[in-house]
Amino acid sequence: MGDDRNRILDLLAAGKITAEEAARLLDALEANPAQAAGAETSAGTGAKTGWPKFFSSGAKATERTGATGTAKFMYVKVVSGQGDNVNVKIPLALLRAGLKLTSLIPAQAQDQINKTMAEKGMAFDLNNFKPEDLEELIDALREMEVDVDAANGDKVHVYAA
């Protein structure tokens, strides 16, 4: 465990991981030494190997985003109890562009959309979308990870990497 801690600190000193990632790894090391060792190795090699292979599973957010901590894609992975698979890889830039698009909708059209959505029971005001909030939202999406394990064996995993 002492070696692992030193390796994390070395990676931090070499600038391969950020202080935030180092803190997370150290926290994980205290909670589960074996798992943290794997995450640390991944973070250290992230800069050399590039982005992880499409739909690699079982990885944690810190190890997936690699040394730079900049996720490029959002992954949605669904595995049903019967063995059916659905994997979707969406560029985060597409999400950003899509969200920005809502702020570019002309005012008259926005009012009409808001009115129609309110009629359908969705009190959702598109005027509230501000460009500065979008960047914050995208950054939050990079850190997002959703894991759903249904009782019938269906699994849904949503994450950014």
Binding site: F54, K72, D84, V86, N87, V88, K89, L94, L101
Partner: peptide
């Protein structure tokens, strides 16, 4: 903005396996 959004679709991948 729509054109920009269309351009950002590059890299989208969908894989469906129905066993």
């Amino acid at each position: 903005g729509v054109l920009g959004t269309v351009s950002e679709t590059r890299g989208t991948e969908v894989f469906i396996q129905d066993k």
